[in-house]
Nucleic acid binder design. Sequence first.
DNA 1: TAACAGCCGCGCCGATTTGCCGCATCCGCG
DNA 2: CGCGGATGCGGCAAATCGGCGCGGCTGTTA
Lengths: 203, 203
Amino acid sequence: MTDTIAARREAPGAAARDGAISLEGRSEADRRLLIVDDDAPLCQRLARAMEKRGFSVETAESVGSGVDAAQRRPPAFAVVDLRLADGSGLEVVSALRQARPGVRIVMLTGYGNIATAVAAVKAGAVDYLPKPADADAVERALLAGDSALPPPPADPMSADRVRWEHIQRVFEQCERNVSETARRLKMHRRTLQRMLSKHAPRS
Amino acid sequence: MTDTIAARREAPGAAARDGAISLEGRSEADRRLLIVDDDAPLCQRLARAMEKRGFSVETAESVGSGVDAAQRRPPAFAVVDLRLADGSGLEVVSALRQARPGVRIVMLTGYGNIATAVAAVKAGAVDYLPKPADADAVERALLAGDSALPPPPADPMSADRVRWEHIQRVFEQCERNVSETARRLKMHRRTLQRMLSKHAPRS
DNA sequence: TAACAGCCGCGCCGATTTGCCGCATCCGCG
DNA sequence: CGCGGATGCGGCAAATCGGCGCGGCTGTTA
């Protein structure tokens, strides 16, 4: 049902029962995944994880290089950060879909809100995940058919862990400035402070 | 741009500059708006407000009557509450699109989360607004062309928001099974229960 | 140099929230 | 019919949070 997105069907051996997609027997071009994210370490980690899962991964860290890669070697899958240093990931989404209409794109970001999620899906993304997302979740979103409730969840990150990772990321972005982080996260400095001191054993 | 949704163009005099849509000179059938919401007072208020703006309004307060109305008199526009007493508003969306592929639907929900927003747009809604949404916003969403691609990225999500989105996502994937969700999320059923009842009191 | 502004760590205390118990339903299944 | 599992909810001790304020340590600026 809900077959509303145009040009959804990927030409090659995409389908499977229940709408789930498999990489089995796909050519290199049909296993190609482009990851566009300006957070280099995260980008690399995700790239490795996805390679382990059978994707042929390429990475980019800006709108410019992302669009470029999309045009030169149109991937069958893509993971795109909404917020890139030199623009919006939505631009990359457009380029990707132009280069290969059947591409399955997952949006990934720590700066999500409903408005941008709506825009992303309308632009052609198949899903939109808030950023502390593990490779499992990304893979499921990429390969989930268009079934409404895609995949039964395996073992997701715990709720607190998700929050903690997010806090960590913002904290790093704020150059370990507690007050600033608390402000951006809309939480109380004292609370953040307590969390950091308890959950602290790290560089 | 971002022309990825199929059958998006409404046949009659839909377009205008900047993609905006106008009701000017439309027939009754092309000004028809179906509002489906089980909150009767809100429903009536919105109905009156939209009539003032030139729509020909019809209301329904359940999935059943909504689908029925959609089939008997397919509207050109619709406002649908995501959560209705007897089911999901997404069912109504399907019926609406089947009855009239070009229908412009705005989803309305008490508390919005990204996962359901994505589901709504994939189901064919043109926008997704959290309640309380005033008539102005609803009208804008209904008549806004699919122009304006990038709503400017905001500041990071709040820590609690990230956690909440994650919970919601897993919850949906567990088919709204509280116990199962709590187990997977490694949190206490009672706590989850309390959260759900507080943060999602009404549709 | 003094004044000022910002960040940081921390103690304290009242208000919430949590973890966890049990209980009473209400299914679906054999 | 009983059994396992889900749900909603009252209650209670313990943990956490939200705020306030303090003193100390930078920078920047007048």
